[in-house]
Design a protein around this nucleic acid. Sequence first.
RNA 1: GGAGAUAUAGCUCAGCUGGGAGAGCAUCUGCUUGACGUGUAGAGGGUCACAGGUUCGAGUCCUGCUAUCUCCACCA
Length: 877
Amino acid sequence: MKELAKTYDPGAIEECTYQKWMGRKYFHAKVDKTKKPFTIVIPPPNVTGKLHMGHALDETLQDILIRYKRMQGYNALWVPGTDHASISTEVKVTNQLREEGIDKQELGREGFLKRAWQWKEEYGGAIINQLKKLGSSCDWDRERFTMDEGCSEAVLEVFIRLYEKGYIYKGSRIINWCPVCQTSISDAEVEHEDQAGHFWYINYPIADGSGHVMIATTRPETMLGDTAVAVNPEDERYQHLIGKTLKLPLTNREIPVVADPYVDKEFGTGCVKITPAHDPNDFEVGKRHDLPKINIMNDDATICCPGKYEGMDRYEARKVIVKDLEEQGLLVKVEDHAHSVGTHDRCRTTVEPMIKQQWFVKMEELAKPAMEAVKNGELTFVPERFDKIYLHWLENIRDWCISRQLWWGHRIPAYYCDDCGEIVVAKEAPAVCPKCGCTHLTQDEDTLDTWFSSALWPFSTLGWPQKTEDLEYFYPTDVLVTGYDIIFFWVIRMVFSGYEQTGKSPFHHVLIHGLVRDSQGRKMSKSLGNGIDPLEIISEYGADALRLTLVTGNAPGNDMRFLMDRVKASRNFANKVWNASRFIMMNLGDEKVTKADPGDLRAEDKWILSRVNSLAKEVTANMDSFELGIAVQKIYDFIWDEFCDWYIEMVKPRLWDKEDASRTAALWTLKQVLINALKMLHPYMPFLTEEIFCNLSGEESIMISSWPEYQAEWNFAEEEEAVGIIKEAVRGIRGVRTDMNVPNSKKATVFVVSESPKVQKIFTEGKRFFAALGFASEVVVQKDKTGIDENAVSALIPEAAIYMPLSELLDIAKEKERLKKEENRLEKELARVNGMLNNEKFVSKAPASKIEEEKAKLEKYTQMMNQVKERLVQLGE
RNA sequence: GGAGAUAUAGCUCAGCUGGGAGAGCAUCUGCUUGACGUGUAGAGGGUCACAGGUUCGAGUCCUGCUAUCUCCACCA
């Protein structure tokens, strides 16, 4: 057994421990029908990504579950990988090219993709290595990428299947356009934010010269594309206008006044300009009234209408248009108006609704089984409240725009015949057009939304669409762990894709976590510069300390603040475990101590065995219901409080005494309990526990050892009670001594007075604890106060009265004060208990066990109260 | 406009299906006892936001209300 350092040094062991695990293939899982599988697929981080606290939390939770299940004997598989992250990566590569003075368009599609792959190979792996620093036990042999061969095949397969079933269609519809990224984006990618803006009131002249119609708009520039003005059909003010024609200012185009219930009579002027090509609502109104759709913008959001405004940016055009209207006397007034503006979540640019030919997934039918899954419990969210958010989104789902005007991604497998216009959707380019037989076919230029491929991740990574053994065995996966921020983007799309393609939910449970915020509760962000780098925390405090910090004291689904004080507390705990282990190993020396004679086990041994036993039961139950923070809190308290501060201290005298017949039993118990505690801690703190476990047990690895299970022979109720009483007594003695300012060096005889033979026995057997824990020189147990100095200091516990003849130190005033306080407390307790027991309704309605419990308390408090009163009388009160 | 979350000790937060208010940090007072001062022993500190209700009993369930945060939503 090697000498251990005085403090735990994570840096010294993490790297080589991880290498050991990798080398021995402990993370690797293969089909084994004799074992039950447990599968998690990683939410693939973007290849552009750098490990941040959100990842650290996400990976830690998954690793805890995987390690736990692996120890429980499951065939645990954690599939890792990365996401190609279409826009993010494309922007990165484009910028890199620009720095080299290369224009993306000039380079062309093929050249660009070559560079993008190079970029992916060079930088895309960084995050994978960072995940390893955390201790993640992913099966790296199975690492996948959303654009690798298998995932790409799955994408083609799904696209074609959905197309053939009519779920994917191409259509000219109004979509969200990002003028900077120059691509369409889905509704989910639009973030709405409130911005201060204006309301411009503008007069549109009636063509027959009979006056004006006043409209209000937040976007005057879009009037260039107006093709109507709408009023509510029931609006009495405007009945006479319906059907009339207006002269659209600045263009002199004539547009009709239409009646449409969409218009809110109360809002604005009750007259709404209709711009079908640049507003989703207007688009709908336009469809109902068969209005023309006039596109007024280029892809970069400059005006494309011929004339004065052509080429102006949309905001510049707005200014000029307002000025022109003012000059023509058509601008009535301007009001401040806050309104919600849609922005692109990647670049914050205000999106422009535009009509474009795009590919869509028809969602209505696909959403049904996804909703049903949650309703019938096939799929559960932890915590449950996310059910509602998920269902609400699905109930209101709209078709999913999946085409992107980007190069980096899965190219849409649609081919157009240049001659006859036929569309062919196929895995490979057809040689000839099936309709006209020509050979002039061109593939669609667009790529797919990056979430299209991640939607297939749980099964594409297991070999789908092939019917692989892996898929058969490991799918559906068990748990998906992710943040609430991507439920819409990802979770929902995986679920409906899973049902559609495999007939099953891709996972049974979704464990949702919140965001890791900074110490002030702000989001960690690049622009604020308040991000904390997990790798720095790991190098300073260790991966285990970081992991523990991230999962302690936080309920699922809630955001958490990242506090350095908590990291330090976690580090301290690691050190505590280290030192407790060091102490045990020092005492074990070269002894193996593989067994103990049960007859040699003392009360404290049985107590701690019993405690670790019930801990295993509780922790297992907590982990099974995903209460990972509660579970680790219990392990933490057990190790630090019960095991270190009590058990180890209690057992020290037996260890010092080499002649003690029960020394081996103590060593054996220390070892057993430590091993069990380490095993329970291992999913949380893998490196620390591995290092100690291997030194202590001589076994290969803790991560392949078995999870502690509750065992009936380690259930010692009697000893638990006895040690409980001893602990109370020790606490009482310590409390009194501190109160009286008695130095530890001042030993005293401890008299224990109890009438109960059972309690007398407990204290007689427990005498040895009082020397070390209660600074006793001698312990005398008796049934009354005979022979005890009147002026002895007292400590009263429910089962006994304890006296210490420290008369020279007895401060009567202080002792009285303490007793009064105790009397006070007891009075309250007694009042409460009596109140309950005297309440007829309580006695008749409460469960019998509860009544018994309260009766027992009454007895205990009464006994205690008598002692206190007696003592007060003794002190002349 | 809907929906959700949070409100518990000075700070950051736990508290599962209702049955005597908890942790870490901070504060105060002790301790050079042979694992650990990244330690140890003790102490102080809370009308569990507010108001009702259900119940023998509510931090926990219900209703309302206030504050803060978040998500969803096409009000020009």
